[in-house]
Amino acid sequence: MTQTTVPQEDPALLAAFEARIAAGESIEPKDWMPERYRKQLTRMMAQHAHSEIVGMLPEGNWITRAPSLRRKMSLIAKVQDEAGHGLYIYCGTETLGVDRHDLFNQLLDGSAKYSSIFNYPTLSWADMGVIGWFVDGAAIVNQTVLAKASYGPYARAMVRICKEENFHKRQGFEICATLAKGTPAQKEMLQDAVNRFWWPSLMMFGPSDKDSPNSAELLKWRVKRKTNDELRQRFVNLTVPQAQAIGVTLPDPDLRYDAATKNWEFGEIDWSEFWDVVKGNGPCNVERLEARNAAHDAGRWVREAALAHAAKNARSVSAA
């Protein structure tokens, strides 16, 4: 094992790079970049891609039970979009010189991180509404800002993906609005889903700024544009009026509007729960990894066959 050392970057190159960032230029794959920049981006993009892929599971869980044909189709289409996002971002990481299969293996062996929200179970149909509303909503808040990040391929991917996430969010909110106007049982189902997903959704923005060691450098290099806490607050400010509009409550007795800051102030986040889930002890961490591994293992003979067939074709073409 060689010890990983922070590479000494050429000061002149580094200064030129930082000047470009400061001037708002975008960094492209062939441009020089500090090794730490490359590492940070790879980490972020891989985490994002993994989240799209693992995120297919909790929603996929309700495809076979969607209560109308229209809802069934829009749910399949949404999960299909997430697969597309994952594929697109995995391919984006290859511009940084990584092999996406290596990243995928890290997901399978449990060493890679993905958004902790997907380690919560989906327990009712209402979860399909609330996930679209909260989880895709939170993703949009994050990704709108990332669309202005300094690395060109990632920023452009975010522009494209964000359009679809917006659609998912509207669709999810519409499911919630329909339930909110429905029978007492439907309203109860909705409120229960809101209660379960509210706090984990706030945790999606990551630890509080004071506990987020990488933030300063990420902000300087425009890998990030806003701090976790700023983004979290923006999400809360956007979401509270939507909850009011459809008449659900949010499970936070401390939630109140502050006229001076124009912010919806919220209560204390249970960070011990967050770290627990991040460390692998969430309600579904084991199941999510098992499901991904089961699909991968069951598909091995299929991938081997496809490779063998392609090799035979290549041989017969070159022999011809």
Binding site: M56, G60, T64, V79, Q80, A83, G86, L87
Partner: peptide, 22 residues
């Protein structure tokens, strides 16, 4: 076919099988 969504042998097939189901 929709039962495959998220459980396919490769990511490209998750997209294709979902498409066919749709």
């Amino acid at each position: 076919m929709s039962e495959w969504t998220g459980h396919g042998p490769i990511l490209e097939e998750d997209i294709a099988t979902a498409n066919i189901a749709l």
